[in-house]
Design a protein around this nucleic acid. Sequence first.
DNA 1: TAATTATGTAATCACTTACTTACAAAGTTA
DNA 2: TAACTTTGTAAGTAAGTGATTACATAATTA
Lengths: 199, 199
Amino acid sequence: MKKTERLETAIRQKQIKQAVLEIIAQEGLHNLSTRNLAKKVGLTEGAIFRHFPTKRDIIKGIMEDVENELVAGLKEIANGSLSPEEKLFNFLCYHVQYLKANRGITILLFSEATHLGDKELIGRLRRIFSDQKGLIAKIIKEGISENIWEKNINPSDVATLYMGIPITFNIEYILNKKGINMKNFCRRMYELVINVLKN
Amino acid sequence: MKKTERLETAIRQKQIKQAVLEIIAQEGLHNLSTRNLAKKVGLTEGAIFRHFPTKRDIIKGIMEDVENELVAGLKEIANGSLSPEEKLFNFLCYHVQYLKANRGITILLFSEATHLGDKELIGRLRRIFSDQKGLIAKIIKEGISENIWEKNINPSDVATLYMGIPITFNIEYILNKKGINMKNFCRRMYELVINVLKN
DNA sequence: TAATTATGTAATCACTTACTTACAAAGTTA
DNA sequence: TAACTTTGTAAGTAAGTGATTACATAATTA
């Protein structure tokens, strides 16, 4: 009966978080129960709760991944030594690519954080959001101080405008997979943002 | 014991949909149960189900309101006789204002539609989304054909960029009420979009 | 090898969910 | 006034939720 391999917690945690994203992408948020999650991983519910104290902690773990993978990657680009234009382009492409590889993550974060009504999760989400905006604003300020872009432009406003791009991309991608024109998406959006900055 | 006034279904339906939006704005999505909804309206659960066959139908009703109020209003602006610039400005301001008055509606729609995993609701959402994009693209095409805006710009891409504005606004507004700089928000975003179009 | 620890199962918990049923009474109509 | 329709209540339902328990066994350590 007992054929299930025994793996250590760190590995199971990765599998569980992976399964969460797969369920959302393939079956929808409404199927994200611990029961279905256990089935997907190939374990029982008890085993799931052996590796995570609560379901909430699984979502929290995914948020931490986003901070460690996405946000850290974006930070590296923003703090690099390339030109502001190159930074902006790489930033946007990296951003979109990450969301493409982890489709549904935007909806998971916003939906679950608000669904669970959890102050800490919402705070984390807020931080991820404002970190990204801050990095974009920083790149833009850099470009302005290097006289590449217009002085009379508000970096924070452009950052707000920017933030809509990956969010919209992700929402459209999960909502309407065929409708969105993926080809060169990040280059096309980059050109538009550059238009704003060059005035 | 029976002090509850008896009101006709049409009125109760309005009250119930109103209560849904209030609960989301004040208590969060996680408190949107039929139990809590009934309490908010001042009725029993049984009464709620007298006026709506299912909870899903309440969400569907709110979606219909969005189509009849928001989308119809935007359509009127787009099809009006003002200049493309004026249309674009009014469009954006009307859009933002509606979401401000009905805050949380973006999260409700995306979250519940995906949470319920309901094909019809997701289809409706998709339609609301693409209708708005289509109207924006139309205004932009108009401006281009009137030689107000650059020819070598893709109206559909700008529409995608545009769509991020109200979505981001709504998400930020519910996530971080104090953080968002509301003052002249739509005018500031309008200026940025105009920069894109004038190249 | 013996004791201990880590990882699994099966059954079940208390609770919440959307929804239903049987009944009461207000409002309308014949 | 009598019959009927509409709108309400109170008390349920079955199904699903996240989480726990008692127990088994594989892997590691003393």
